[in-house]
Every structure is written in structure tokens, then in C-alpha cells.
Design a protein around this nucleic acid. Structure first.
Length: 415
DNA sequence: AAGTTACGTAGGTCCACAAGTCGAT
DNA sequence: TAATCGACTTGTGGACCTACGTAAC
């Protein structure tokens, strides 16, 4: 993936296709994605002009550059001179838009090469560009993010963000939408505000105190029972720790139910806080953390659902300061969240897309897990030192003084 | 082609106990 | 507020066991 079109290897790539994990020039993009009805549904966006490998999420007016989540943070997250840069979210598109249509949604891109009109628009009868309409998406003004604005974004705004950023078109708005709100906090920021998940049915905007934050997500208004978790997450959990640490494929992509929250969560209950939480999904999303990235996090990641006095929130955890943003972006699945398209809101209503995404996710997960296995990190050297010299019976530790069949020091048996 | 068996691989579990954590005093 | 104490939890590695996938028959 990079500067040159992955398909023709000739032209400069301009578009990133999440489904294909490919960088394409506009011409190839049209060719590839006009091939069939499924490929037409691939959502694409511009390529980050900084790293040339990730889908861009924001357009910085000052820098005149399109940036992915990670690069956006690199550019705007640390320098006080750039934190106030105004930025516009970059919409995804699908179908086979013409150059002029692309220009209309990405007005900041001055010269779209003409790629000719394909017939697929007519065939499709619609084109699901996330337009800057007044209702379903951000208008130009609405798109502007000023980083000086802190923390949470109002629910309606978040909904609009999701609508415009996740996927165009009018069909199948997800029941729960992640907020691609990326810019406020760095990786592992301990006090990051809860990211908010909003639902189309939620009531009006609530800007932001912590309490308001909970108000945006009202359990009474969201059909979020246990049966819906699979729909919600794209997978179901039995134990979040199992999910993230042990990483059983079944627990991630399979059919287990949510039956027990992590003990870390359970201990957090106060004042109706049913399940505790550790960090925030915002952190996960803001660092382009994919599911498997989070799974590979080195410290106890937790997925928790919280309710407090009728207010609810949802959070992922597992990102710590020792994990750089780049760590989360180098994985294939990152685009899922980078695109503002969480696994629980498939971009297309048909079942084919989720299944394809799912198989891709499984494949990426397996590869990641394979690699991760050999990266075990010892947290306490002293404990390792003890374990290394401990006497055992068939691999198990034995009480001091008991017979043993293996002594790491002497390699002899006591009987 | 379908079913059975053998084999390899991956991951979970078990054990004891020092070190760490946390609440009570 | 700081110090101390006790109860509880965590983490560590090697061997074993089980589940799963693949190949051969």
C-alpha cells in the first residue's frame, strides 16, 4: 500500500478502499468497483497524504492536507500551534461517482482527473455518496472540528458524524454508531472522556458534562438487550478478558453469549454502575485501534458496558501509553474503525458484506495472533526468576520440600 | 464422493508462592 | 495523614490435555 496505485502500479493512488485494503487511482477505482454489485458497495475515501497508506479521515484547512487518524494526531495532537487547526471530516463514498461528483463531496481536492462516466450509476440507480446535505450529513460548516472544543460531542452531532463518515446512502443506519471523534486525546490518556455512542432514537443534543454524557445514551430508548449484542458488536462475548487476552477465535467471532463481565468491571459498581469500565472507546477509535489491535494490547483490556442511573455508556479499553498509535495502525483491520465504521454497523444491509468483512477480520486476527504469540512480555522479572528456578512435577509447581521430577537448577529428580 | 483414522499444531489448565494490591485499623 | 497489618489477588513456566485442521486411506 502506498503512493502508487495497487492495481495498475502506474498512477498515483488517491482512493483507499477499505474492503480491498487497497490504494487505487481514480481510474482503477472505477474499473474495480464497477465490476459487480458487491464491489460497488465498497466504501472508499481519500488516502492520507502524510503516510500514503491509511484512509484519510480529516482535511486540515491550514495544512491543506488530508490526514488519517494517526497522522492527524501526529500533526495536531502535540503541537500547540496546530491544535486549533480547523479540520473537516472526509466523507466516504461508494458506487462509481464521477470526477465531478467526487469534487462535490471533496471540494478541497482541486483537480480530480477525469475518469469518464461509467454505467454503474445508472445500473445502480443510486450512488451512496455521503453528501453534505443538511439532514443526513455534515454541511461544510458542520464538518469543521475545532480541537479546542473538548471532549464529548453532542449526540446529534455525533450522529451526523457517523452518518456522513461511516457510509453514505439512506439505507440501514446502524442502531449504534461509533463516534469517529478522534482528536481530543492521545493514546492511553487516562482521563479521556467517555466516547459516546448514540443511537438514532436518542433525544436531543446534550453538550457535555459527564452526566450529560450518560444522558445521550439512554437504555430505555435503545433496544440493547443481550440478543442484540451480536448485532451490536458483530460478535458476542463470553468474557471480555477471554476475548482480548486469550483471544479465542470463538469468543471474538463466534457465538458465545455475554454471560459474565470481566471481574475488573464487576468491581466497579456503585450507584447503579452495573459494570465497570476502564478506558474509553474513544481511545480505541482515536488511535485507529482495530479489534485485533486491542486484543494485542499488553495490559488488561476490557470491554465494558456501563449504566448509571439509567444512563449508559460503552467503552473499550486496553490501550496504554506504551502502545503507540502506529502500533494500532499497522494492522489490516484498522480501517474498520478508521473509517468510522464499527464492526456492529455493517455498511450495507445485505448479509454478504458482513460475512466478507468477518472472514477478512478472522484472517487478520489469526495472523496477528500468530505474531503476537511470540511477543510475550514478562511484566515481573522477579517472578519469572522465581518460576525459572522452581521445582516441578509434570510441569506443575510443587510445594517446597515435596518431591519433584524436575529441578531447573540441578535437573535431577528427588525420587 | 463421503467417511474414518492418524497426525500435527495451538491454546488452555494446573500447580505454589512471592510480590503486589487494597481496605481496615 | 501516615504507618502498619492482614486478607486477597496476580503472575510466572513446563507439562499435560483437549480441540481443531489437514492429509492419507
Amino acid at each position: 500500500m502506498g503512493y502508487i496505485c495497487d492495481f495498475c502500479g502506474d498512477q498515483r493512488s488517491m482512493v483507499y478502499c477499505r474492503s480491498d485494503a487497497a490504494c487505487l487511482c481514480l481510474s482503477c477505482d472505477r474499473n474495480v468497483h464497477s465490476a459487480n454489485a458487491l464491489s460497488k458497495r465498497h466504501s472508499r475515501t481519500l488516502i492520507c497524504e502524510r503516510c500514503n497508506s491509511q484512509p484519510a479521515l480529516f482535511r486540515c484547512f491550514e495544512e491543506r492536507i488530508s490526514l488519517c487518524q494517526n497522522c492527524d494526531w501526529m500533526v495536531h495532537g502535540n503541537s500547540s500551534s496546530t491544535t486549533t487547526h480547523k479540520r473537516q471530516t472526509i466523507n466516504c463514498f461508494s458506487g462509481c461517482p464521477s470526477a465531478s461528483e467526487l469534487s462535490s463531496i471533496w471540494s478541497f481536492v482541486l483537480n480530480f482527473p477525469s475518469v469518464g462516466e461509467s454505467t454503474c450509476e445508472q445500473e445502480l440507480g443510486l450512488m451512496s455518496i455521503a453528501e453534505n446535505s443538511s439532514t443526513g450529513a455534515w454541511g461544510p460548516n458542520e464538518n469543521i472540528i475545532n480541537q479546542s472544543v473538548s471532549g464529548a460531542v453532542a449526540a446529534d452531532e455525533a450522529l451526523d458524524i457517523a452518518k456522513s463518515s461511516v457510509y453514505g446512502g439512506t439505507s440501514s443506519m446502524p442502531e449504534l454508531i461509533s463516534l469517529p471523534n478522534n482528536t481530543e486525546k492521545p493514546v492511553g490518556s487516562a482521563n479521556a472522556p467517555l466516547s459516546k455512542l448514540c443511537c438514532p432514537g436518542t433525544k436531543g443534543p446534550a453538550v457535555s458534562g459527564d452526566d450529560d454524557l450518560y444522558e445521550d445514551f439512554n437504555m430505555d430508548e435503545v433496544d440493547l438487550n443481550i440478543e442484540n449484542y451480536e448485532e451490536l458488536f458483530g460478535f458476542t462475548l463470553n468474557n471480555s478478558e477471554e476475548l482480548f487476552e486469550n483471544g479465542g477465535i470463538d469468543s471474538l467471532f463466534g457465538t458465545k453469549d455475554i454471560s459474565a463481565a470481566d471481574s475488573n468491571c464487576q468491581g466497579a459498581g456503585e450507584e447503579g454502575l452495573s459494570v465497570g469500565l476502564v478506558n474509553t472507546m474513544q481511545q480505541a477509535c482515536s488511535n485507529a485501534a482495530s479489534a485485533d489491535s486491542m486484543m494485542s494490547a499488553k495490559t488488561e483490556p476490557v470491554l465494558c458496558f456501563t449504566t448509571r442511573q439509567g444512563h449508559s455508556s460503552l467503552s473499550f479499553s486496553g490501550l496504554t501509553g506504551e502502545s503507540s498509535a502506529g502500533d494500532y495502525q499497522d494492522c489490516g483491520a484498522s480501517s474498520m474503525l478508521l473509517m468510522g465504521e464499527p464492526p456492529w454497523c455493517p455498511p450495507c444491509p445485505e448479509s454478504s458484506c458482513p460475512s466478507a468483512n468477518r472472514s477478512n477480520a478472522v484472517m487478520r486476527y489469526k495472523e496477528k495472533k500468530k505474531t503476537r504469540k511470540f511477543e510475550k512480555r514478562v511484566r515481573y522479572a522477579s517472578r519469572k526468576a522465581r518460576a525459572d528456578v522452581r521445582r516441578r512435577v509434570k510441569g506443575r509447581f510443587v510445594k517446597a520440600g515435596d518431591n519433584y521430577d524436575y529441578d531447573p537448577l540441578s535437573q535431577i529428580r528427588s525420587y
